[in-house]
């Protein structure tokens, strides 16, 4: 089963790399974001004063004012912008990538009329699912990790130049190591359902936009300074996504008719 699932994953990855649009969406855009965001933020941070009056923090969002109080204005603002506000972007990246890739893998096969031949191969639906999960998840995770590495290389450079020492914390490591893979898996489970019930990959992509809604809540929470991701939160979030994935897969393999993958 594993060899066949790997064959499906490798075949899907070869197909992704034969499409410029897919590669642009999955690799080029995240890398450009990883380059652009720290550069733009550091330009803005050049104007941050080294000291602030107590009254200046009164109107700051809670997370930022606590950081400024604990680390000082410059370090606090650097920490807030580079480690708190930008973290959810690295959750949006794999989700967007998985939406594009998994839709191509599941609904795309249906639209290109290749699904019938695949279902006719001597493999179970579970094997097909595993193969079609491995391909988008591995590329989405890889692309996010690559972007995060570039991002932190730039952030470290800019912050060191400003006399601030910044390194990814436990929230970042746990987000990249656990939340990103689990979120990607859960997204594939949702897209597999959507693709089985839709007619083409564009329709599947549009419907899969619902996956972004909970992430937008996290983006808004951090951007308004009311929420900062922590190790404990990331562990719980990863667990929830993993459970969603397991339930999604279990129900998909039991309830989806092979015909649904074809028509």
């Amino acid at each position: 089963m594993l060899d066949q699932a790997l064959a499906i994953a490798i075949k899907d990855i070869k197909e992704y790399f034969a499409s410029r649009t897919l590669i642009l969406t999955v690799f080029i855009l995240p890398i450009m974001m990883a380059l652009a965001v720290p550069s733009l933020v550091s330009l803005f941070l050049g104007t941050v004063p080294s000291s602030l009056a107590i009254g200046d923090t009164r109107f700051m969002p809670p997370v930022l004012s606590q950081a400024v109080a604990a680390l000082g204005p410059r370090s606090g603002i650097y920490w807030y912008l580079f480690t708190v506000v930008t973290l959810p972007l690295f959750l949006l990246m794999p989700t967007a990538s998985v939406i594009v890739l998994a839709s191509d893998s599941f609904a795309g096969e249906k639209e290109r009329k290749t699904a019938e031949g695949l279902v006719a191969e001597p493999v179970s639906l579970q094997t097909i699912f595993v193969g079609k999960t491995l391909a988008p998840v591995s590329l989405a995770v890889l692309s996010t990790w690559l972007s995060a590495t570039i991002y932190w290389a730039l952030v470290s450079t800019y912050s060191t130049q400003a006399g601030v020492e910044l390194l990814p914390n436990a929230a970042w490591f746990s987000a990249l190591a656990l939340v990103v893979p689990c979120l990607s898996l859960a997204s594939v489970a949702v897209i597999s359902w959507i693709s089985s019930l839709s007619k083409g990959f564009k329709e599947a992509q549009q419907m899969a936009g619902v996956l972004l809604i909970p992430l937008v809540a996290i983006v808004l929470g951090t951007a308004t300074g009311n929420f900062a991701s922590t190790l404990a939160f990331n562990l719980e979030l990863s667990g929830a996504y993993l459970v969603a994935f397991v339930i999604g897969v279990y129900l998909w393999a039991r309830l989806i008719e092979p015909r649904r993958l074809v028509e």
Partner: peptide
């Protein structure tokens, strides 16, 4: 099995199409 529509992976080469089918078996 040959379906009514050939159902080939058009982004892949002819050889890749056959070898994928072979590996599935």
């Amino acid at each position: 099995y040959l379906a009514e529509v050939p159902g080939l992976y058009e982004r892949l080469s002819a050889m890749d199409n056959i070898l994928f089918h072979a590996r599935m078996r």
